[in-house]
């Protein structure tokens, strides 16, 4: 910690405490042995983690979120990769417009998307369907997948592809054997980031999800607006741990700072 005075160190410590405090609070409360909200002052207990198993609606919501995130992240990547290759490597009329269009959900508040999808789906008779929800999520997360795909496609020199071409490979072989493996890390990172974004999404899903397609954040939100109990804390703790694992993967392979620059 060179070049840092004591004031800077104290500030840094307070900042880190501020960032971690609510998460630690959630984790602490989830280990309480009491039947109500309290800190585990009289000893740790796993009773509220066992309680999760008695609430299948949360477990169903968890799997709903996982499926939703897997499907929508995959579709988002399938849309993004060819688009990123076109935008990064071709100059064509309308390129800027198309790229702005595909990134535009970043500028639209999730609430507005939620409102728009609610009305759209009820008009065309897709209200409350899983595929409607998945499509809405695809719209929401495609910008994230696209940005990471764009970053890796832009950094890709055409030399290796030209080399493969001159060695006799067909255009399709060049794509499959050279281009795709080279952009794969960016694509996988985009998929993972899309997955998490979809998995965590609340604001839009609150409008679009029906009781049959309730995602975990939506289920948790409805629970919290009714009552805050140690059960919701233990569920949150599980989520914190799972997210932490994903975060380590992302950080290991890409660096969190690179992924988040310009997010939002």
């Amino acid at each position: 910690m060179q070049n840092l005075g004591p004031a800077a160190r104290i500030f840094h410590a307070l900042f880190v405490i501020f960032i971690l405090a609510p998460l630690i609070m959630v984790i602490a409360v989830s280990f309480t042995d009491k039947g109500y909200l309290s800190l585990p002052t009289d000893g740790l207990s796993l009773r509220w983690f066992r309680a999760i198993l008695d609430n299948p609606d949360f477990i169903d919501a968890f799997w709903m979120s996982v499926w939703l995130a897997v499907i929508s992240a995959s579709v988002a990547v399938l849309i993004s990769v060819p688009a990123a290759l076109a935008i990064a490597r071709h100059k064509f009329p309308g390129r800027d417009v198309i790229s702005a269009f595909l990134l535009s959900p970043l500028m639209i508040p999730h609430l507005v998307l939620g409102v728009a999808f609610l009305q759209f789906y009820s008009t065309i008779g897709l209200g409350g369907s899983f595929y409607g929800l998945a499509a809405a999520h695809v719209i929401l997360i495609t910008p994230y997948a696209l940005r990471l795909a764009l970053a890796s496609a832009t950094g890709l020199s055409t030399d290796a592809e030209n080399a493969a071409l001159t060695l006799g490979a067909s255009k399709f072989t060049v794509f499959r054997r050279i281009t795709l493996p080279l952009i794969l890390p960016g694509v996988a990172g985009g998929w993972l980031l899309s997955f998490i974004t979809s998995f965590d999404e609340l604001t839009m899903s609150v409008f679009v999800a029906s009781p049959a397609t309730q995602t975990l954040p939506v289920r948790m939100y409805h629970h919290i607006t009714q009552t805050i109990d140690p059960l919701i804390a233990s569920i949150s703790t599980v989520l914190i741990v799972l997210t932490f694992l994903v975060m380590l993967i992302l950080d290991r392979f890409y660096g969190l700072d690179k992924i988040f620059v310009g997010k939002g």
């Binding site: 630690i24 998490i196 609340l202 919290i224 949150s236």
Partner: peptide, 29 residues
């Protein structure tokens, strides 16, 4: 510390807000 500061962005907003609700509630800390 980058991990500490940026990591929470990946954690659901519901969870992070819940933490503050636990602090702020009538019988909270």
């Amino acid at each position: 510390f980058l991990l500490v500061v940026l990591g929470p962005l990946l954690i659901s907003v519901v969870v992070r807000t819940l933490g503050w609700a636990l602090f702020f509630g009538g019988n909270g800390v």
